[in-house]
Design a binder for these strands. Structure first.
Length: 573
RNA sequence: GGGCCCGUAGCUCAGCCUGGAUAGAGCGUCCCCCCCCUAAGGGGAAGGCCCCGCGUUCGAAUCGCGGCGGGCCCGCCA
């Protein structure tokens, strides 16, 4: 028997039966609708409306006739998965039997449940997080970081060898402005990255007022790109100061990278590509001296790829980054995760590369997500309207820690570890459960709440499952005994379990982890109901064995699902 | 002006890609439940012109067109 396909097999069976009924009753060769997961009655359903218009008959009547035919012709014993067929309001509804539920639970016990092999032997690069140097990370950075990580984890679960890449920007005007500020205010020793932010805000205010300062910024950029020793030394200092807190945040988040790259390393190659574009007639120098790629005939705005003083832009360095990435790794898929404000930018860059004859451009995918706003308005380092990532994580951890202290007795160190798992898990879940396209208005109080539709709720259900298994003395291998009956609560759980492989696959195909969050909440809710209604530890015999299997399977599915989101389950909570 | 995205309950969001039954969750409000594997829980109630209009269809929150409201992008920021 194939793994992970109870649902697909059941649908196939129902469709086969329906097809033969429809052919016999109405002489129609192929089913004009699909069997779908039922929203209302039964488990699977088949709408008879398209058939009704084809056969020019009443859908209610058709549903009745088909149901009669199925019951008479196949009988209940003739079907492997359906135990009952009913006609309601133009639908044929199928009720799945205990065999289905048993198979579903068995499949969910597999340690690779929800995995896939389509990426086997292939590489995938996922570029995400990518904060700018010289500033602390704020809540705006979290979305790329956790979404990118989830995408990377999803690809890995499909068998890809994944390279997680953090592209750090220090070659742009932001850092140049910062350097100008440090020079202007005669700053000696720098304490930390937050102090850098203060200077950054200050110098920006001045530049806004005084145009001449802009020229000085460009002069610094020239020095940076020419490899001026003193400037490079300053860059090194900024790297050192900025990277340390970055790493602390990543450690708290549990996010790792296989690669850490700096945009300054793509300056020279970028210039070469800009010239290549010029030679190929894609770009030309405009009257003010800047080099512009002409993309308007493709319905895309033109793109400046070199400043008039010859220095590179974000666009220039991205051309080079793309080229080098495909040269070095030759990935089957290369994903970049950024705010959706950069959608056009990547369209432009990859259109250029396509025009320049690169054959890898169709393996590139940009995942854009909506912006994060604070209640006071848009996040802006420049204007100082920020909420530091560090503070958000610490608040969440503290909030979780306070709750644990009220319910479990354990050592300080253990509390800290579990509080981090719960606090950080809920933050991740809270952001990931919103669909990518949507903007998020960040609410600090809600972010540290653990009730209702939260990551903690999902974790909590997994912990309850663990407790049951522990109390039951879990040295027996879980499996469903033959011919066991499932009650309604048990069936809800097992049916939810059978939906998991599709959800997991879809999420890593679409890069939309929010669907998985939604699923995990539903699975958790089903398990909660089961937990209330079906005692496990006190039950006996086959009943106990079946319930233990359901518990173990649910735990497996939750842990697997959460792991795709970069979230783990604590031992207790 | 052009392009992309969003608009669903008081609030925060699923559902839209792939049209299907009485549009779902959570928070908040109101009511009930710890004999029992952790109440970070469960059960129930109230709460919806699915932004508006037109079209396609047996059937539209879902698809198409036209509006309205909000966000973002559109020449040397990233």
């Amino acid at each position: 028997m194939k793994k992970g396909f109870a649902l697909a097999q059941a649908i196939e069976e129902c469709e086969k039966q329906l097809a033969s009924a429809v052919k016999k009753l109405y002489g129609i060769a192929s089913l004009p609708a699909k069997v779908e997961v039922s929203k209302q009655f039964g488990d699977l359903s088949f709408p008879c409306f398209p058939l009704a218009s084809q056969a020019k008959k009443n859908p209610n009547e058709i549903a009745e006739k088909i149901t009669q035919y199925l019951n008479a012709f196949y009988g209940l014993g003739g079907k492997q998965y359906a135990e009952k067929v009913e006609a309601v309001g133009g639908y044929v509804n199928f009720f799945l039997n205990d065999g289905y539920h048993a198979q579903s639970v068995e499949e969910a016990l597999d340690k690779d449940f929800g995995g896939g092999e389509e990426g086997k032997g292939k590489k995938a690069v996922v570029e995400f997080s990518s904060p700018n140097m010289g500033k602390p990370m704020h809540v705006g950075h979290i979305r790329s970081t956790i979404l990118g990580d989830a995408i990377a984890l999803g690809l890995r679960k499909r068998g890809y060898k994944v390279i997680r890449s953090n592209y750090l920007c220090e070659a742009g005007t932001q850092v140049a402005k910062l350097l100008l500020g440090l020079k202007k205010y005669k700053v000696g020793a720098i304490k930390d990255e937050k102090q850098l932010l203060d200077y950054y805000i200050k110098i920006n205010a001045e530049i806004d007022k005084d145009e001449k300062l802009e020229k000085q910024v460009h002069a610094i950029l020239e020095k940076m790109e020419d490899g001026d020793a003193a400037t490079l030394k300053q860059l090194k200092t900024i790297r050192k100061i900025t990277l340390k807190p970055f790493k602390e945040n990543y450690a708290k988040l549990g996010v790792r990278f296989e690669e850490e790259i700096f945009d300054s390393d793509f300056v020279n190659e970028g210039k070469k590509l800009a010239l290549e574009a010029k030679e190929k007639g894609i770009a030309r120098i405009e009257k003010d001296g800047e080099l512009v790629a002409f993309l308007e005939e493709y319905g895309i705005p033109n793109l400046v790829i070199l400043r008039s003083n010859g220095t590179t832009l974000y666009s220039t360095r991205d051309l080079s980054l793309a080229d080098s990435r495909f040269r070095i790794y030759n990935p089957a898929i290369s994903v970049i995760v950024t705010g959706s404000d950069q959608l056009m930018h990547f369209k432009q860059v990859y259109k250029m590369l396509e025009l320049m004859g690169r054959d890898y451009t169709n393996r590139f995918k940009h995942v854009g997500f909506g912006l994060i706003y604070l209640e006071g308005g848009k996040l802006s380092s420049r204007k100082g309207n920020v909420f530091f990532l560090e503070d958000l994580l610490d608040d969440a951890i503290e909030s979780a820690s306070a709750q644990i202290r009220g319910r479990e007795t354990m050592g300080k160190k253990e509390i800290k570890g579990i509080a981090q798992t719960i606090g950080v898990g809920s933050i991740k879940f809270g952001f990931l459960r919103v669909s990518n396209a949507k903007n998020i208005t960040f609410n600090p109080e809600k972010a540290v709440s653990f009730e209702g539709d939260t990551g903690a709720y999902v974790q909590y259900n997994a912990v309850r499952a663990k407790n049951i298994l522990r109390k039951a003395g879990g040295n027996t291998k879980a499996s469903v005994p033959k011919n066991t009956q499932f009650n309604d609560a048990e069936r809800k759980v097992s049916f939810m379990l059978s939906l998991y492989p599709d959800v997991a696959r879809r999420v890593s195909e679409n890069f939309e982890p929010h669907a998985l969050c939604d699923y995990l909440l539903k699975l958790s809710a089903a398990f909660s109901e089961f937990y209330e209604k079906c005692p496990v530890v006190q039950s006996e015999g086959a009943e106990r064995q079946k319930r233990l299997a359901i518990v173990a399977a649910t735990l497996n599915a939750i842990e697997s699902g959460l792991s795709l989101l970069g979230i783990t389950v604590p031992k207790k909570m």
